[in-house]
Amino acid sequence: MTVLSAPPSARRRAGVLDRVLGKQPIGTAFVTPYVVFLAAVFAYPLGFAVYMSFHDYFFAAPGAIVERPFVGFENYAAVLSDPAVRRAFGNVGIFLLINVPLTVVLSLGLANALNAAIRWRTFFRVSYYVPYVTASVAVVGVWLFLFNSNGLVNSVLGPLAPDPSWLVNSNLAMPTVAIYVTWKQLGFFILLYLAALQNVSKDLYEAASMDGAGRWKSFWNVTVPGVRPATTLVVLLATVTGANLFTEPYLLTGGGGPDGASASPVLVMYQRGIEQGNPDIGAAIGVLLVIGVLILALIERRFVGKEE
């Protein structure tokens, strides 16, 4: 009995299709729209920003043919020599030092408490999530009422209130913005930890209890290692969203005040690129920010996400 085999050309074509589509072409078909979305929304703008940052780029009328000569690293030199840009990167560093650890600690602690059998658990879960889905403008209005010079917080503190007040104090403006962002986004990260806690086996808690571990030791030795992948995700997401800070300082401090003390790189990028009409400078700031975030994410992935 003779076994028929496909000709070499057909086998080569099949091999190429397997490499392109993978072993599950249906899965590839489902993923393709999202890949196209990522390419259109993220990859193309990033590539175009890199192009702009190496040219003397400026806005022109639609259809106009203008020269945009290659200038090499001149835009990057101008960015790195700009005190406002350097201060903005320092500001976002302060923001991340406050926001990321605070987000991890509070969201994990609250998620662990909300995961227990407590009364009104659903109510508390919804309460923590409401600020996250509320429009930033509405929530900012509440915080301005609380933290302005004659606000509720200063009225409660009395003589202990800072002078100048929180959002107009060069030393307290960015920490106040960091606390606000932590509070507003807390509900989202609590949900991430709540989902991760469902995968921690109850048998581990029972074994720890039989070994004489109390609540704190069980939390530290069972819960924390059990949600390590979620912690890695929380740290990375908090870092990326924090590095892209724009709305909060723009609304809370009137555009990065006082005197740039709460300005973020994205805010300065908007000011230089859009308001001042220097998109090449704004693109250079954006590229430097992307590089910095990638380096920071790799470091965090290395230390936070490492296996025990």
Rank of each mutant, 00 (worst) to 15 (best):
L204P: 13
V224Q: 07
L194Y: 03
V181N: 08
E206H: 11
N199F: 07
S209A: 15
A243M: 15
V235A: 15
A195H: 03
G187H: 03
T231M: 12
A243R: 06
Q185G: 14
D211Y: 08
L197P: 00
P229Q: 14
T239G: 11
T231R: 01
T232W: 05
T232Q: 09
T239N: 08
V227W: 02
A243L: 11
L245Q: 03
Q185T: 13
A243P: 04
V227H: 01
A213S: 15
A213M: 10
A243I: 08
I179N: 02
N244P: 01
G242E: 06
A195V: 10
L204H: 12
V240G: 04
Y193G: 02
G226M: 00
Y180S: 06
G242M: 09
V240C: 09
K184A: 09
F246S: 03
N244M: 11
A207P: 08
A230Y: 00
F219M: 05
L237F: 05
G242K: 01
A196F: 02
G212Y: 13
I179K: 05
A238N: 10
T182F: 13
I190E: 02
V235R: 12
T182I: 09
G242S: 04
A243F: 10
L194R: 01
Y205W: 11
F219K: 01
T241S: 14
A208R: 11
V235N: 05
V181W: 02
L204V: 09
A195K: 07
V181S: 05
Y180W: 06
V234A: 12
V224S: 06
G214L: 07
Y205D: 13
K184W: 10
I190T: 00
S209H: 15
D203A: 15
F189M: 10
G212N: 14
A238T: 15
A230P: 04
A238K: 04
T223V: 07
V181L: 01
L197I: 00
L236K: 01
Y205K: 12
A208I: 15
L237G: 08
S201K: 04
E206D: 13
F246V: 05
S218V: 14
A238D: 03
L237C: 09
W216I: 13
W183G: 07
A238G: 12
A213P: 11
F246A: 05
I190K: 01
D203R: 03
A195D: 05
G187K: 13
Q198N: 10
T231W: 05
N244G: 09
V200L: 02
I179F: 09
A213R: 11
L186H: 06
W220A: 15
Q198D: 11
I179A: 12
M210C: 15
G214E: 07
Y205P: 14
T239D: 11
G187Q: 09
K184H: 06
P225T: 05
G214N: 06
K184C: 04
V181Y: 03
Q185M: 10
T239P: 10
A208Q: 14
W220N: 13
G226V: 01
S201F: 03
G226D: 00
R215M: 11
G214A: 09
D211W: 12
A213Q: 12
L237E: 01
L245G: 04
V222H: 00
F189H: 08
L245T: 04
N199M: 13
